[in-house]
Simulated scan of single mutants.
Amino acid sequence: MKVGVPSEIKTDEYRVGMTPAGVRELVEHGHAVFVQSGAGVGSAIADADYEAQGATVLPDADAVFDAAELIVKVKEPQPVEVARLTPGHTLFTYLHLAPDPELTAGLIASGATCIAYETVEDARGRLPLLAPMSEVAGKIATQAGAFMLEKPLGGRGLLLGGVPGVAAGKVMVIGGGVVGQNAAEIAIGMGAEVYVFDRSIDRLRDLETILNNRASTVYASTLAIEELLPEVDLVVGAVLVHGAKAPRVITRAQLGLMKRNAVLVDVSIDQGGCFETSRATTHTDPTYEVDGITHYCVANMPGAVPITSTYALTNATMPYVVRLATQGVHAALGADPGFMAGLNVAAGKLTYAPVGRDQDLEFTAPEAALAAVGSGPA
């Protein structure tokens, strides 16, 4: 199969969808890999590094899309990339369709087969291609929040870990999944007083053990959140519903309970955000203020550390890319229900039910839509 790796063009995005190690794997399986010139620069990977492992470097994105059947990316395609997609393409990347009806409509109209990293499941129902970036984003969330608490950045002027004789700051983490666990670990490491909220008692039990009882675990009722909000300096929103819009866990009215210049970090922003006042920001312009509360809602937090993120992501995605290229989309997805769960759009049909519910669109069973896709390897 012909596999294409274009440069990422989302604002402040420095990751790349494949490393030279991935090229080597694919070439050894008999596939051709086409990489856009400069695609790896943000992750400290030169064109020559790709060429040394057998890739063909092409001058621009148009050439990559024209040459390839399988397109491997990191972030959701931007409008100019959607326009390049054809029914002969399979796209494998993060999509985050639930909060983006325009992208959903564009992908449906393209006729391409679109598989989302974030909805692929493993045998235990976990999200193996989302987890690495959730780990990175959770760690960044606390680091960024601690930085934004500094007075020159508009924060309260508080050192999150405190010093002898001066109390540490308080951190509320809403959501005890991969993001929340990593955010809590970093906050604990900084010396903060940490509270982790979740609605799964079993998960809270696990976190007691994982965090070695160094954080307080709290059942995430609305009242419990409201009671703690006046005390905390940093809130990390880490709520996830598989493939669907994130639920709102803090309303604008509740901002009035918080200390002035406290910080909210919304890691759920890719799925629409879990604070009512959230809107996506960029690394170049990461924050804004609402009612005296600093909001940090960068939509591609792991993109700030691309050397770490690119390798963490591609370590997880590469086995799936090899399967798609070697077996073809029909066989690869048909043999693995968890992989099939990643199919969001095929043959002009929406195939992921949570997106259909969020956008009030009809959706087709993925197996049925996939059957209408051409029988070639892509």
Rank of each mutant, 00 (worst) to 15 (best):
V41L: 13
A299G: 15
V136S: 02
G334D: 06
G40A: 07
G30E: 02
V194Y: 00
I108H: 12
N315W: 05
K349P: 05
G348H: 06
V322Q: 13
G38L: 09
T217H: 09
S309V: 04
Y50I: 01
A353E: 15
G376C: 07
G106M: 09
S268L: 05
S309W: 00
L255K: 01
N213L: 06
A105G: 01
K259P: 04
A368G: 06
L130M: 11
R84L: 14
A341V: 06
A48P: 01
L211W: 03
A353R: 15
G54K: 04
E13Y: 03
A341W: 00
G106P: 04
G237F: 01
A55S: 10
T294D: 00
F147W: 12
R279I: 11
P59R: 14
V265T: 14
E81W: 01
P306H: 07
P302T: 10
A346W: 03
E185Q: 15
S375R: 11
S221K: 09
V232T: 12
A299M: 12
G175K: 10
V263A: 06
S200M: 05
A304E: 13
S134R: 09
T217K: 01
P337Q: 10
G138D: 03
L85C: 04
D291E: 15
S7P: 02
C274Y: 01
M340F: 04
A341T: 09
P20H: 11
T277D: 02
A167S: 11
V64D: 06
V329Y: 00
A312V: 03
P377T: 13
R279W: 11
